[in-house]
Computed example of a mutant assay.
Amino acid sequence: MTERSVLADGFVVWEERPADATFEVALGGGHKVKAYAYGDGSEVVFLLNGGPGLPCNYLRAPHLPIVEAGYRVVVHDQLGTGASDHPDDPSLWTLERYVEEVEAVLDALDLERVHFLGHSWGGWCGIEYALTYPHRIASMVLADTAADIPHLLQEIERLRAALGSETVAMMQRFEAMGNHAHPAYKAAVDLLDFRHIRRLPERPKPVADSRAGFNLPIYMAVQGPNEYHYTGSIRDWNRIDQLHRFTWPTLVIQGQHDVLTPACGMHMLNALPNGEIRIFQNSSHSPFYEEPRAYRRALLDFLDRQRV
């Protein structure tokens, strides 16, 4: 069954349809993940979605239309999400293990080189993957992500400060108590989400589908209780000083209102030897939904210039 969001002029914002091929990929420890391939183009775009702990729906759907431009799109449900196995083992929720998971998927599908698009957490994992397995990378798109979490946390404090000192003090008090469910705290997070995650009146269906399958313990282990309070293992991660090793073309994408701010994007750009940046003025964390036409144009312009 195919589901679509189509503008009046026929532009397809997002599409969900059965995969042309599905794969079960075996990981260490006896676990399996489900991978999906669309199209038969010789140029492969590998998508790695954010979260962590989200099924791939939200990132897959707005990128399936690029199949019509001749690309093969490959994506998978990360371990603990979607149609992949859901083990109850907190020791699995590490950046290093997810890097090896990506390599297992690309190896199982015989994908020697890919155009790697990582969104948010998918960008963090993608950066670490590219540093570990650089021979797999033909080009990269680092979308709404960062390479320096301590710098990101400084930017987040600036965004929180815009709520006012009393609200920030309230948030800090409940964070110190570990009470992230208090209505006042949740209201502040909801407001920040509307400003900096998705500036839309409602979630698109693929986003809602991903949220419905959210595996919160994974997110808590790696990141923390929300987008504005990091307590997980990624808190001190920083690879800015390693980005000089990215010799391939790299497109940095940010929304002007993104929680992973344009300053995070420029921080990466200044460290990349072969980088370029596109900042979407009317977007936050999801320009593929917030400015879909401009996003698609920018993405295809970049990818078309990397065709072999």
Rank of each mutant, 00 (worst) to 15 (best):
A35C: 09
A35Y: 12
A35V: 05
A35N: 09
A35T: 06
Y36L: 03
Y36C: 01
Y36F: 15
A37P: 07
Y38G: 10
Y38F: 15
G39H: 10
G39S: 13
D40F: 12
G41P: 13
S42G: 14
E43S: 13
E43G: 10
E43L: 13
V44N: 14
V44C: 15
V45N: 07
V45L: 14
L47I: 05
L48S: 13
N49I: 02
N49F: 03
N49M: 13
N49H: 10
G50W: 03
G51R: 08
G51N: 08
P52D: 03
P52E: 01
P52Q: 05
G53K: 05
G53D: 13
G53C: 09
L54K: 00
L54I: 01
L54G: 07
L54F: 13
L54N: 04
C56W: 08
C56S: 13
C56E: 00
N57W: 07
Y58I: 06
Y58P: 00
L59H: 12
R60H: 06
R60Y: 06
R60A: 09
R60M: 08
R60W: 03
R60S: 08
A61K: 00
P62A: 11
P62T: 11
P62Y: 10
P62D: 10
H63L: 15
H63R: 05
L64A: 07
P65F: 05
I66K: 07
I66S: 07
V67N: 09
G70I: 07
G70P: 05
G70Y: 06
Y71C: 08
Y71R: 12
Y71D: 11
R72F: 02
R72S: 08
R72P: 02
V73E: 09
V73Y: 09
V74R: 01
V75Y: 00
V75W: 01
H76E: 03
H76D: 00
H76K: 03
D77C: 00
D77V: 04
D77H: 02
L79P: 04
L79C: 04
G80T: 02
T81L: 02
T81C: 15
T81E: 06
G82P: 05
G82E: 08
G82V: 06
G82W: 11
A83C: 05
A83P: 02
S84V: 03
S84R: 02
